[in-house]
Nucleic acid binder design. Structure first.
Lengths: 180, 180
DNA sequence: CGATTTCGGTACCGATCGGTACCATCTTGG
DNA sequence: CCAAGATGGTACCGATCGGTACCGAAATCG
């Protein structure tokens, strides 16, 4: 396999960026925390911006896979997404949505790579939720999926500030109403 | 009056922090954009962190006053908050909620000044919304207010990424359901 | 095994960070 | 009118930023 250093770097960057923000983590911290040499970073990435994009792409894949697994384990119903999110928010390292956070601290222009990756992530999540709603046999799945994702984002942001899983219960109740 | 430089500095910092993020604006930019001397900053504030706190306190006051005025102009019904937010999001300078953004880029510890100010802001907004719901004669105002603020935050975050006011319409529809 | 590549580590670079000290100027109140 | 204080501007500080060049060691592979 091509690289071992690349994966360690992505793993370390993913953790540190999520914990302390992208702008809050310098290259030095990245290198010491990953045990990777300075030059190796530039062998695998064009620079920090490129590393940031790679980290977000990786996190998108991992996070959506995690969501699929948890939702399936919880029965596969559309409303299970809120229970899954609540589980994730119980983690002491929970700090909200990495894509919302990245957009919040980077987005000067809506055309930046970070903003584009965040929008793509949200769209993919919405597509997945729409699939869940369709599989459950509900009508108006596209509109319902948009409402679900709005509730999910609202709950995640509220949970980040309140440090509680209660917002996911509230969001789930509202979502339940939409299905009836 | 004590200071003219202080107000200019707060005004400039408020604009620049919101547009480019707190960590994305250095003191140099602050000083040139406000026309304030370097020493004046440290005469009125203990440092950048103190300035950030002052900016957030000021924005909390201004923003909630703006919301009250717009809601009143729109009739004063609870659902009007979503119409007011949509109006605000039409501004080309709209970049989401300054407190969510600040929390997203600063919050390592939930005990930081920024996090505390953001939580206080959200609580004050929730209290205001609860008052609107009570005035409209609905039962269960506290729970409804929590649901409303979750919808508001979800809509603001979605609007920031999608660059659209459509999320406010969706959120309003869901809120309407809660009142029936 | 030897050759090639990838590796971790270090020394640098210019730029900018937040912060301090000291100006000359301008406003302002007694 | 004149002293006291606030102001804008500049020079400077150590630290850190992202990024480049180069090294010897280690792993990889033919």
């Amino acid at each position: 396999m091509p690289t071992r250093a690349r994966d360690r770097l992505l793993q370390a960057a993913d953790e540190l960026f999520y914990e302390e923000g992208i702008n809050g983590v310098g290259l030095e911290r990245l290198l010491t925390h990953s045990g990777v040499g300075r030059a190796s970073l530039y062998r695998h990435f064009d620079g920090k911006d490129d590393l940031v994009s790679a980290v977000l792409e990786r996190r998108d894949e991992h996070w959506r896979q995690w969501l699929r697994e948890r939702v399936e384990a919880l029965g596969g119903a559309p409303l299970a997404v809120f229970d899954a999110l609540a589980e994730g928010a119980r983690d002491s390292a929970f700090r909200g949505c990495a894509f919302i956070n990245a957009m919040a601290e980077m987005a000067k222009e809506p055309g930046s790579a970070v903003h584009r990756l965040a929008v793509e992530h949200k769209r993919k999540v919405a597509d997945y939720v729409r699939g869940l709603i369709e599989d459950a046999g509900h009508t108006g799945a596209p509109e319902l999926a948009e409402q679900f994702t709005l509730l999910m984002d609202g709950a995640v942001v509220t949970a980040m500030s309140e440090r509680s899983v209660e917002p996911f219960r509230r969001a789930r109740q509202m979502a339940e109403r939409l299905l009836s």
